[in-house]
Design a protein around this nucleic acid. Structure first.
Length: 613
DNA sequence: TTTAGGG
DNA sequence: CCCTAAA
């Protein structure tokens, strides 16, 4: 690695550089400085994308589709349950059994799949609380039969996935219908292209999102739009997008009556106003899951999962109820590139997050009768001829992404994406893979270990970058951020691994990383040499290889160090800093502030002299 | 982009 | 840590 030590001051003590830096007076020369290449390979390359593709034409051959595999109807049922039929459904087994009851209601019973079948917060909470319960806990939703087809919508579009369904993930592609097909060759017309970044660190501070969501945000709050590439661009966007994301999340939750958790921080009204404005500017893009891209198969002929309850119900009867038993919503295949060292847990979380983000971002259910979409939601099932003996073989469900809903969950649709061609492969969501290496204790310790000689720090991250460089370049070349599946044989796994990343997602607060003692020592030493007010140089001197410490961070840390040193030890919090170090902090602070004053006064006198001379 | 300082 | 005015 290149040693960038440009500064040749003493290693200790307060040697004054030849020209003590005067704040804001000599910045022009900085432009000539060699700038550290801030474009980490990771910015470009550590991307794994999962793509949800839908192809209703290929529903039989491994096509991604959401199959409402069963429809049953029964007569004189006051209520019906929506329940999962398979206790341990694999990838494709997000099963919902639903009914439309005449005067009764619909009961949803979230089980292992953790599906919430209700929009309102109370039921969401119910779902949350019943996460680990069996079918005994039922969430009831009343739906009049003579209502409309929106009943279906209510049942399906509000599905929440939460928790960790034991068998949501399957590496066996045969066990599931594709949700995300990660095939760049076929990915010619992505319907829904989105990147999401999972910041992975669940230990991230509570303020990271500013809000939490009872049902979905818990695991998913890290989903934020991610822009790969130049960190400067990221910086540019970060602030505004973060605002928008925060606002969106908070607003959305407040709309749903969910409890706001602002992490102890209050978002000022002005800030919120700005955030709202920012968010409004986001162009809502409608994503089509495509007509029949996700198809609910309700035909008896098709299937296996179709069943009839009740005896020979007559269409037209007064209290005639139709029981729709959507046995299985098959999740289209998910392709994922995931490093071998990723954990199964991270894989599960990834799948969870992807599915959750897709569903939570708003799926709208459409009903196709004999291939024709039933537009009128107010039409009764009877009017729509969805009743026993009629057309039950010809009912399909479609899923579409709700317009403008996705961005808040990190599912972003580039506007340049091509959104036509229903038969083309259409990724519903593309997920970005991040650095699979977590900020583990080991890694952190490693970093700390080398702090003593900061200029020679060669963190693991460096090697990580090089490891992923090739892949990332390929990704950026091939498509938006879709990383080719590592191995063609691994096509079943295409979701993005939930990896901790040191790259904070756009819109997300950075992970709080308290300065370690070696870091503090390095900072103090650097400031002793360079003085306060040269944070960029301090950064380059002592933290050049520590990407997550910006010069602003160093400045802030120095500020806190000075403050810490000036208060009594009893008032100090966090990892205790040795008093000797704090003494050095105070000494350096006093010294350099004096230097600055002298420079300023000397400059002033010099100006006066020159003007007088 | 950096610095400086408030939040 | 975040945000941002100012340079």
């Amino acid at each position: 690695m290149v040693v960038r030590k440009r500064l040749d001051y003493g290693s200790r003590g307060h040697q004054v550089p030849a020209m003590p830096r005067v704040p804001s007076s000599a910045r022009g020369k900085r432009s000539a400085r060699r700038k550290k290449d801030e474009m980490s390979p990771f910015d470009l390359l550590a991307t794994v994308a999962g793509t949800l593709l839908v192809d209703h034409e290929n529903s039989s051959n491994n096509a991604p589709s959401i199959n409402a595999a069963a429809l049953t109807y029964a007569r004189k049922r006051k209520s019906v349950k929506a329940e999962q039929c398979d206790d341990a459904p694999p990838l494709k087994s997000i099963a919902v059994e639903s009914c439309i009851a005449g005067s009764g209601g619909v009961c949803a019973s979230p089980r292992q799949s953790n599906i919430c079948l209700a929009e309102n917060s109370s039921t969401r909470n119910e779902c949350e609380s019943s996460r680990s319960l069996e079918a005994t806990n039922q969430v009831q939703v009343q739906q009049p039969m003579d209502g409309d087809t929106t009943a279906l919508y209510s049942l399906v579009s509000s599905v929440d996935l939460d928790g960790r369904p034991p068998a949501l993930v399957s590496s066996d592609s045969s066990s599931g219908v594709p949700l995300c097909i990660h095939d760049k060759d076929r990915n010619t017309s992505p319907l829904c292209h989105a990147e999401a970044r999972h910041a992975a660190d669940r230990d991230d501070d509570e303020n990271s999102s500013g809000c939490t969501h009872p049902c979905t945000m818990g695991n998913n709050k890290s989903y934020m739009p991610q822009y790969t590439g130049d960190s400067r661009i990221r910086k540019m966007f970060a602030s505004k997008i973060r605002k928008a994301a925060r606002n969106k999340m908070c607003g959305e939750m407040s709309n749903k009556g969910s409890k706001l958790n602002l992490g102890g921080k209050k978002i000022s009204t002005t800030r919120q106003r700005v955030q709202r404005a920012m968010f409004k500017r986001q162009k809502p893009v409608r994503r089509h899951f495509t007509p029949s891209s996700a198809k609910g198969i309700l035909t008896e002929a098709s299937g296996a999962s179709f069943s009839v309850e009740g005896q020979n119900p007559l269409c037209g009867s007064e209290d005639y109820n139709v029981k729709l038993r959507i046995k299985s919503f098959t999740i289209p295949e998910l392709f994922i590139e995931i490093p071998e060292n990723a954990t199964v847990g991270s894989l599960k979380r990834t799948v969870m997050d992807v599915v959750t983000s897709i569903i939570e971002s708003g799926l709208r259910v459409g009903v196709l009768l004999q291939g024709k979409s039933i537009q009128d939601d107010n039409k009764t099932l009877r009017q729509a001829r969805i009743c026993h003996g009629e057309n039950l073989e010809n009912i399909d469900f479609t899923l579409e992404c709700e317009a403008g809903q996705s961005s808040s969950h990190g599912v972003r649709i580039p506007e340049e994406m091509d959104f036509h061609g229903a038969d083309a492969m259409k990724p519903l969501a593309m997920v970005k893979c991040e650095e699979p290496f977590s900020e583990t204790k080991a890694g952190y310790n490693n970093q700390q270990r080398v702090q003593a000689s900061p200029n020679r720090v060669q963190s693991e991250h460096g090697s990580v970058h090089s490891l992923f460089e090739t892949t990332a370049h390929e990704a950026s070349a091939s498509s938006q951020a879709i990383v080719p599946v590592a191995s063609p044989s691994s096509e079943a796994l295409a979701i993005v691994p939930v990896c901790k990343s040191k790259r904070p997602a756009i819109g997300q607060r950075r992970i709080r990383r308290p300065f370690s003692l070696p870091e503090v020592e390095a900072l103090v030493e650097a400031v002793e040499q360079l003085g306060t007010g040269r944070w960029r140089d301090v950064k380059m001197l002592a933290f050049d290889n520590t990407d997550h410490r910006t010069y602003v961070d160093l400045k802030d840390k120095w500020k806190t160090l000075v403050h810490t040193a000036s208060i009594s030890p009893q008032q100090r919090r966090g990892e205790p800093v040795p008093q000797g170090l704090l003494d050095r902090v105070l000494a350096a602070q006093a010294y350099w502030s004096q230097q600055q004053q002298q420079v300023l006064s000397g400059k002033a006198s010099g100006q006066a002299c020159s003007s007088s001379c």
